[in-house]
Structures are given as structure tokens and as C-alpha cells.
């Protein structure tokens, strides 16, 4: 199949690569750019493991083609923080045990990132609904809620002790 050139910004860097027009954004990020933190749990848009930010808003990278991201700005989990400099949400997920196997975690953190931007003071009831687009099979979600609440606390005061 003929390849086309895709140009987009990923995690703040301009990237250009060639791919088939049918290639999903998730496969492009993972295969062509080596960003394997974006996970594929269902490839039919339900589980949310492949969530990325497209121009700042959550999107399912398994349901988008790479060519649709042409000219847009994509943020993956690798763009939010690194092992050397983890994002506060990453710290909070670990501190509160908001993950077990970790497979859904990158997608969850990106969804939580969007949620906290819109709701800096998280509300447990609203969060239950707003985060329901990401499936976790391990945690039963309780400690994910606690992690998001803890991240909000850290965002107000990074030195704060768990309340």
C-alpha cells in the first residue's frame, strides 16, 4: 500500500514519518515513534488504555488514523512525565496504589489529567462518571479515585502530606 507523509507535534517535538494511510495513530506512535507507553487494550474504542491528548483533549488513539493527527499536537504519557521527573499524577498513582498491573495506567493518567484541569477540586461522585471511559480490571477503581484526589492535593502543594 502507498505510504504518505505524516507531520505532527508529539510531546512538544515536530515529528515526520511515512506510514500507510490506514495506520492507526496508536500503531504509529508505538511502531514508528517508539512511544510504547500508549497501550492497546481492545482496539475498538471501549477500554481507554490507548488514551492520548490531541490538542489537549483526550482521544482514543486506536480509533484515529495517524493521518488524522496531521498538523495536530499529540501528548502521550511519555510527554507528561519521565522516570527522572514524574508528573504529580504519576507520583500520586504510586503513592495511593492506584495501579496494579499498570496496563491501563497511562490512559487513566491522561484522562485524570484532563479531569483535574477542568475540576481542580475533584468530587468523588462526579469523578466516578467522568473517569468511566477508562477500564481498569485490577484496582476496583477505589484507589484510582484516591490517587486523583491526592494529585489535586499535590498540585496545590507539592510538599503536602497525605490527608
Amino acid at each position: 500500500m502507498n505510504e504518505v507523509e505524516v507531520r505532527l507535534a508529539v510531546n512538544g517535538r515536530e515529528r515526520t514519518a511515512r506510514c500507510e494511510p490506514r495506520m492507526t495513530l496508536a500503531d504509529f506512535l508505538r511502531g514508528h515513534l517508539g512511544l510504547t507507553g500508549t497501550h492497546l487494550g481492545c482496539e475498538h474504542g471501549v477500554c481507554g488504555a490507548c488514551t492520548v491528548l490531541l490538542d489537549g483533549a483526550t482521544a482514543r488513539s486506536c480509533l484515529m488514523l495517524a493521518v488524522q493527527a496531521q498538523g495536530h499536537e499529540v501528548t502521550t504519557i511519555e510527554g507528561l512525565g519521565t522516570p527522572e521527573n514524574p508528573h504529580l499524577l504519576m507520583r500520586a498513582f504510586s503513592e495511593m496504589h492506584g495501579l496494579q498491573c499498570g496496563f491501563c495506567t497511562p490512559g487513566f493518567i491522561l484522562s485524570a489529567h484532563e479531569y483535574l484541569r477542568e475540576n481542580p477540586r475533584p468530587d468523588r461522585l462526579a469523578m466516578r462518571k467522568d473517569l468511566s471511559g477508562n477500564i481498569c480490571r485490577c484496582t476496583g477503581y477505589v484507589k484510582i479515585f484516591e490517587a486523583v484526589e491526592r494529585a489535586a492535593e499535590l498540585m496545590e502543594d507539592p510538599e503536602s502530606v497525605r490527608s
Partner: peptide, 21 residues
């Protein structure tokens, strides 16, 4: 104790079978 195994998993730098290159 918070888990030792978390850092690669929360930062998307873990290595699951599909991630090998």
C-alpha cells in the same frame, strides 16, 4: 509501603510483550 514496581508503569516506560523492539 508504596510499590517499588510502579515507576516504569506510571511513566509508560514499562515493557510488555507488545513493547519489545
Amino acid at each position: 509501603v508504596a510499590r517499588k514496581e510502579d515507576l516504569p508503569l506510571v511513566t509508560g516506560t514499562g515493557t510488555y510483550v507488545p513493547d519489545f523492539n
